[in-house]
């Protein structure tokens, strides 16, 4: 298999919370891609509402794109590819984090598109799913070829089969968070005492 994630410990859905939150380094070589050449894929498509009645976040991979898979015989099969290449504005609509939970559980670590919906992108990052924004022309090329891609988050590069390099932007904080398995919560908990004071001040301001 060429879709091995170098240096990445895969996330076992039955693990404890510490492990679940773990987001490992991103360095892939010639990883297989799954392509969905459709614009505006919304989170209702990714994870239909009938699967939101759960009270846990595990095992959602099997339901990813449920209705599309059911109704479209040509819908591509998820068989261990770790990179999803797709049309612009991926993840629009509902804020359901069940969408990135499902994608991650289905084996996806990296999504490449020319634009992502804000809430989805934020949710994805918190689950160790890297959203890479590339020029629409480049994305179209990957969508057509369906070729294997290499990803190097450290170097901020996507590399195609002919060794062409495509640099991508990522805020330094997001990069660090993904590379070093940092959790926002730990960072925020450091302000615990400030927050209590802040809350009192807000009340004085009528907030």
């Amino acid at each position: 298999m060429n879709n091995q994630l170098f240096g990445i410990s895969s996330v076992d859905s039955s693990t404890t919370r510490n492990q679940q939150e773990q987001t490992a380094p991103f360095k892939k070589e010639a990883a297989e891609t799954i392509v969905l050449p459709v614009k505006d894929i919304d989170t209702d498509m990714i994870m239909p509402a009938q699967f939101l009645k759960v009270t846990t976040k595990t095992g959602l991979g099997q339901h990813v794109f449920h209705n599309l898979k059911k109704n479209d015989p040509n819908f591509p099969e998820f068989r261990g590819q770790s990179i999803l290449v797709t049309g612009q504005n991926f993840g629009c609509g509902s804020s359901r984090e069940h969408a990135p939970w499902g994608l991650k559980d289905a084996g996806i670590d990296v999504i490449i598109a020319s634009d992502f919906a804000d809430i989805f992108k934020g949710n994805a990052e918190k689950n160790g799913l890297l959203c890479i924004t590339l020029d629409e022309k480049v994305v179209q090329q990957f969508l057509k070829s369906g070729e294997r891609l290499s990803v190097d988050l450290e170097a901020q590069l996507v590399i195609d089969e002919e060794s062409h390099q495509y640099p991508f932007e990522i805020p330094s904080f997001s990069k660090k968070r993904l590379l070093e398995n940092l959790s926002d919560l730990d960072y925020l908990l450091d302000f615990k005492h400030t927050v209590q004071e802040f809350s009192k001040r807000q009340k004085m301001l009528g907030l």
Binding site: K57, S95, E97, G122, N123, D184, L188, F191, K192
Partner: peptide, 14 residues
């Protein structure tokens, strides 16, 4: 917000 952020607000109000 997503559920991870809900947790953050619960625990830190930030």
């Amino acid at each position: 917000i997503g559920t991870t952020q809900i947790e953050h607000v619960m625990a830190t109000q930030t």
